[in-house]
């Protein structure tokens, strides 16, 4: 964005020589940055790369070599077999369960949270700040202490057959999402809301037609994060899903791993983890464009 402006400016610059220098300067910086980012990327990726290779090794080689001396798919075969043994339907069912407990949750959660964030940011109503503080407060209690009381509560509410205990509470919104979106709503000038109000739009219409598109980058970001968070959620499903038919992928991966120290299950565990990553990467790639694309801010203001 800013770089485009740069080029525009140089057109107005007095000497064409300057234009050449400026372009080169941008390219030079680009190259340096790409190199630096690539080095960093190697660090970020190295453990992941090791993980991929480890799924293709026999289990005796796990800690002794980096590249497999013997390439094998035994890890994947074991994963398939073990998953089928652990749960009806094996890893496919695990995928299904994960999708079921993630997709609807994320969609509804974002929907609900966006409304709440809008209200906290743009509307004035009685008790607003106190409620927000209380909501924030609930984030400050470590899960460990409410774990057992929550288990008791879910038991009383009969939610623990199947995955409902993990899904239903999340339908009511997520505080992190609200907090984050609230920040974005704040950064929209009040003049826009006013303009809409003057045009006769009600609260809901203002929200949906005008403000929501403006915070699309934020919503897309939260959608990704919420998806990833729920997809990888381990402790909640572990404790609150009572039925072994409803294991999500993280639970399956956990069940696959053997007793501490033995390397036998490591290839299959890592294989399952790898497969679990695939949807995340897909979602990430798909939503990424939404984060950048959409509406340039200044256009609305004029």
């Amino acid at each position: 964005m800013g770089d485009q402006v740069l080029q525009e400016t140089t057109v107005e610059a007095p000497a064409p020589l300057k234009k050449k220098t400026r372009i080169t300067q941008k390219t030079v910086i680009d190259i340096i940055l790409t190199v630096v980012l690539s080095l960093g990327a190697v660090i970020m990726l190295l453990p992941f790369f090791w993980m991929v290779l480890a799924t293709l090794k026999p289990h005796t080689e796990i800690y002794t070599t980096f590249f497999p001396e013997e390439w094998t798919l035994q890890g994947y075969v074991n994963m398939w077999d073990d998953c089928n043994r652990l749960m009806e339907g094996g890893i496919i069912r695990g995928f299904g369960n994960s999708i079921l407990t993630t997709v609807p949750v994320v969609a509804i959660q974002i929907f609900v949270s966006a409304f709440a964030a809008y209200a906290f940011a743009k509307l004035r109503f009685f008790g607003k700040n106190i409620v927000f503080l209380i909501m924030l407060g609930t984030m400050m209690i470590p899960f460990a202490v409410i774990m057992l009381p929550q288990a008791w509560l879910y038991g009383q509410m009969n939610l623990t057959n199947g995955p409902l205990a993990v899904m239903i509470p999340k339908f009511f919104g997520s505080i992190t999402t609200v907090f984050f979106l609230r920040q974005f709503f704040y950064s929209i000038p009040d003049s826009i809301t006013e303009a809409a109000r003057l045009d006769g739009a009600g609260y809901t219409k203002t929200f949906i037609s005008i403000l929501l598109p403006l915070v699309m980058p934020a919503i897309a970001t939260q959608a990704i994060l919420s998806f990833i968070g729920n997809w990888n959620d381990f402790l909640g499903p572990l404790l609150f899903i009572g039925d072994d038919d409803w294991l999500t992928l993280p639970l399956l991966v956990n069940r696959l791993s053997g007793s501490g120290g033995s390397t036998r299950e490591i290839p299959s565990v890592l294989a399952a983890s790898l497969l679990s990553l695939v949807p995340i990467i897909i979602v990430f790639a798909a939503f990424q464009k939404k984060i950048i694309g959409s509406i340039v801010f200044s256009a609305v203001k004029g």
Partner: peptide
């Protein structure tokens, strides 16, 4: 017989949760 297994790290957490909710 409906059997379910967990490893050491998670077994007691899960067991305690089941007992707390009367299941």
């Amino acid at each position: 017989i409906k059997a379910s297994y967990e490893q050491e790290a998670n077994y007691y957490d899960k067991l305690d949760t089941m007992i707390t909710r009367d299941e």
